Amino acid sequence: MSAITTSTTGAGERFAGAGFGTRLSEAMAARGPLCVGIDPHVGLLQRWGLPDDARGVREFSLRVVEAVAGQVAAVKPQSAFFERYGSAGMAALEETIAACRAADLLCVVDAKRGDIGTTMDGYADAFLGKDSTLAGDAVTLSPYLGFETLRPAIDAALATGRGVFVLALTSNPEGAQVQHALADGVPVAALIARQAAAANAVEIEAGAPLGSIGLVVGATVGSAARHLGVDLGAVRGPLLAPGVGAQGGGAAQIRDVFAEALGAVLPSSSRDVLRAGPDAGDLLAAAQAINEELRHAVAG
């Protein structure tokens, strides 16, 4: 069993000082740009010899954190793989987030939340609230009820030193139906990027290297940003790029998609790291190899 012991209390104590964009920029400079996805789906649990239950997910996730802490920029636990086990699974997610905090490892909770009114207030409290045990360093959000419906989460992130990643150009084929569509003559993805840039303005004007309001842009979307007029460089926030490795994204794809915004890219890889487990040394070796390739890619 993992040697990591965690506490889920005092979640807000860490977030006095620099905003998420600044802390992420520092982590990427020091440890390389890689974000390791923590996706404990059934196939990987079986591969690691772990049970398909909350205990297995907890053990899987804590082993990943223990293996890569101090060696990569961030990790990204996928909330769905914890939620499927109910309250015990959510407790495992809380422990994973607490383990990241204890290891000084940035944690992006991949929850893709988005709603309106008091419901969005609730999601903001859960994933970005000062003392919430479900709050990592950032959370992914869906803007497709309108970008401004995310305002409670954006305000909470900025108030607590956390960040958000807003879905903008995803690599799944169905995403184009919404993201490439025109709203008042402008592609939806371009509007989302412009609104994220506006939300970052105060931090950038104050001298932050990156704002804390980022976008999710798939590593395999090719020329979509250029063709749609999505100015990724103008966002001045972090760009989470899932799809590295097994999904086809590599150094060449990263350079093609992000061009002038390479310094803001947080590439995410899950399967190419996780299938190297369960041995901690093998996990770390896989992460380091990918991280080194990506370090050269984002250097331009």
Results as ranks from 00 to 15, higher is better:
177 Q>M: 07
174 E>V: 02
247 Q>S: 12
204 I>G: 00
211 G>H: 01
254 I>F: 13
193 A>D: 07
210 L>H: 11
200 N>S: 06
247 Q>T: 11
214 G>N: 13
241 A>V: 05
212 S>A: 09
228 L>R: 11
154 I>A: 02
244 V>N: 01
245 G>N: 13
164 V>F: 03
223 S>N: 15
157 A>G: 00
225 A>C: 09
239 L>Y: 06
230 V>K: 09
237 G>R: 07
218 G>K: 06
199 A>K: 04
237 G>C: 12
243 G>V: 06
224 A>I: 00
161 G>S: 09
231 D>E: 14
175 G>F: 03
154 I>G: 03
249 G>C: 07
187 P>I: 13
252 A>L: 14
195 Q>L: 14
234 A>Q: 13
211 G>W: 00
226 R>F: 06
229 G>D: 09
181 A>K: 02
240 L>K: 02
249 G>H: 07
220 T>Q: 09
247 Q>R: 10
179 Q>E: 15
172 N>Y: 05
181 A>L: 00
253 Q>K: 04
241 A>Y: 07
234 A>F: 13
174 E>P: 00
178 V>I: 15
181 A>P: 03
234 A>Y: 08
201 A>N: 05
190 A>D: 08
190 A>E: 13
173 P>F: 01
214 G>P: 10
218 G>W: 02
185 G>R: 04
261 A>Y: 06
151 R>G: 02
257 V>R: 09
216 V>D: 08
149 T>I: 04
153 A>G: 07
160 T>H: 15
149 T>N: 14
223 S>K: 12
251 A>Q: 14
174 E>R: 08
202 V>E: 15
265 V>W: 09
183 A>G: 04
265 V>F: 11
219 A>V: 13
205 E>D: 15
240 L>H: 03
203 E>S: 12
251 A>L: 10
241 A>S: 08
259 A>E: 15
192 I>K: 06
183 A>F: 10
183 A>W: 10
260 E>W: 08
228 L>W: 14
245 G>L: 07
193 A>T: 09
230 V>L: 11
148 E>Y: 01
257 V>C: 12
173 P>I: 04
216 V>Q: 03
179 Q>L: 03
252 A>D: 15
246 A>Q: 03
257 V>G: 13
169 L>G: 08
265 V>Q: 08
259 A>M: 07
152 P>E: 02
248 G>N: 10
261 A>G: 12
156 A>L: 00
243 G>T: 08
239 L>K: 05
192 I>A: 06
236 R>H: 15
176 A>E: 11
197 A>H: 13
163 G>C: 10
225 A>G: 10
208 A>L: 10
198 A>F: 04
151 R>P: 01
196 A>V: 12
150 L>R: 03
250 G>T: 02
224 A>S: 15
150 L>F: 01
239 L>W: 05
190 A>F: 12
155 D>K: 11
178 V>W: 10
245 G>D: 02
242 P>L: 11
246 A>D: 02
206 A>D: 12
200 N>A: 06
237 G>V: 08
187 P>S: 12
224 A>K: 01
205 E>L: 08
248 G>V: 13
248 G>F: 05
217 V>G: 13
187 P>T: 13
258 F>H: 12
159 A>N: 05
216 V>S: 07
157 A>F: 00
164 V>W: 02
186 V>K: 15
223 S>L: 11
264 A>W: 02
162 R>M: 14
